[in-house]
């Protein structure tokens, strides 16, 4: 039985007794949509390494264990009810620049630009992010650096995304700050909590890109001050 199936049973029992159920987010239940979001025994997505809550199974616990369940806690993720939180801040960060500006129909033939396999693979490792927000929940600063750096790196590793890379990193980081996410202090908790194995290497890459962009691009866009 999976962890969420256990919660289903708890809720069914509650309902049968005429009590309110317990609100939590979930959807695909196969570890890819990023909707499930529980801090279980102090760990986002629970004790299993690189596993979302929906793929956590009760066999990881012992009979008689007390399990503590909490919501993602971050100022930028206001709690809606019980363990359901509002993560639209992530959508707004993507809106700030987490895309390639290409209109439908305007694309060149797919094989026109070869991409070295190593670059494609590293872009993919970053693109594997499911946007669940466990990195934020794990960080004592509630920093979204792992999430933002994954998108920044995914696109800047690829030639298609390089064109807008400088503008993108500046805009996304600015939006991240605006949403109230904290800064990175290199504790690596995000990497440990990430269900998709995104590493802090991408944060280093983003910092490098950001620094470069502030020197060579920000002035052009935002003026000297």
């Amino acid at each position: 039985m999976s962890f969420l199936e256990m919660l289903d049973i708890v809720n069914e029992e509650q309902m049968k007794q005429g009590k309110e159920g317990f609100a939590f987010d979930h959807d695909c239940r196969e570890g890819i949509c990023g909707m499930c979001s529980l801090v279980i025994n102090g760990m986002p997505h629970g004790p299993d390494h690189a596993t979302t809550t929906c793929q956590l199974h009760m066999r990881k616990f012992k009979d008689g264990d007390t399990i503590v369940i909490e919501p993602w806690r971050a100022a930028a993720f206001p709690v809606i009810r019980d363990c359901a939180v509002d993560r639209t801040a992530f959508d707004r960060i993507i809106q700030a620049g987490g895309f390639v500006s290409v209109n439908t129909g305007a694309a060149p033939e797919a094989s026109t630009i070869p991409v070295p396999k190593a670059d494609a693979d590293r872009a993919f490792d970053a693109a594997a992010c499911i946007g669940c927000g466990a990195c934020v929940a794990a960080c004592k600063n509630a920093s979204a650096m792992l999430f933002v750096s994954a998108k920044v790196s995914h696109l800047s590793f690829l030639p298609q995304g390089k064109v807008e890379a400088k503008k993108r990193v500046l805009a996304m980081v600015a939006q991240m700050d605006k949403e109230g996410f904290g800064n990175c202090t290199n504790l690596y908790e995000c990497q440990a909590a990430c269900p998709k194995g995104i590493t802090v290497d991408y944060i280093a890459k983003m910092n490098r890109e950001y620094l470069g962009a502030t020197v060579t691009y920000a002035e052009k866009v935002y003026g000297k001050d």
Partner: peptide, 23 residues
């Protein structure tokens, strides 16, 4: 179908590639 692949590659979808860099 062919237009879709073109569009997705341009958006930065990281499709599997050969060592030569092609899809």
């Amino acid at each position: 179908s062919n237009l879709i692949i073109d569009q997705c590659v341009a958006q930065g979808v990281p499709f599997g590639r050969e060592y030569g860099g092609l899809l």
